[in-house]
Amino acid sequence: MLTVENLHAWYDHSHIIQGISLTVNTGEIVSVIGRNGAGKTTTLRTVMGLVAKRKGRVGFDDQGDILMESTHARYHHGLGYVPEDRRIVPALTVRENLRLGLVASALKGQEEAVIDRIAETFPRLKERLNQVAETMSGGEQQMLAIARATASEPKMIMLDEPSEGIMPVLVDEMFDLFIRLKDQGTTILLVEQNVERALGISDRAYIMDQGVIVHEAPAADLLENKEIQDRYCSV
């Protein structure tokens, strides 16, 4: 589904991503973990086309190399992205935020039906559809961000620390949701600080440090390997 080869990215003159290669196969959940500042967010942003200076190859689905394509083109290829800081539009209602996830989609004509379906999957949003988004709790806002990104039924979705700063019951709900998304055929690339939870639902994982990938393994193996976890994931 996603093949990243020798990816580099820069912010101004600082070389942040220094030659990363990773693959996510169709139907997998793959985690990227690593300590603060390792470059996880920058990796996802580069794959989404949001870092201007970039080099390497990003193969997606049957599209060939999409490295230099625009961000909105990636959405149309079926690549969804939930950024680190949620980025719901605070002054819009929950319903309007969801509609925003559909304005450019082929499903736009079935807006009502899609929002009804989302309301079933996200009971917390259902009763708050007409509420202004910023008046919800952080966890509910995160759920909204995920619902918005999945509304157009992307083939693959990248999530950047979705569980950060969220109360435990919602984290449980969220990870259950990821498993359900996977069952429905969505491929997932997950960046998480919550290492055990992430590895628990992942097929494979990459460990990043200082802009490069330092380790790759099946998630189950990494879960056992406390030494690697301590070396690269403790803060």
Partner: peptide, 10 residues
């Protein structure tokens, strides 16, 4: 930026 992520040619 989020509008672009959601498929709109801003």
């Amino acid at each position: 930026e989020i509008v672009r992520v959601l498929g709109v040619d801003i």
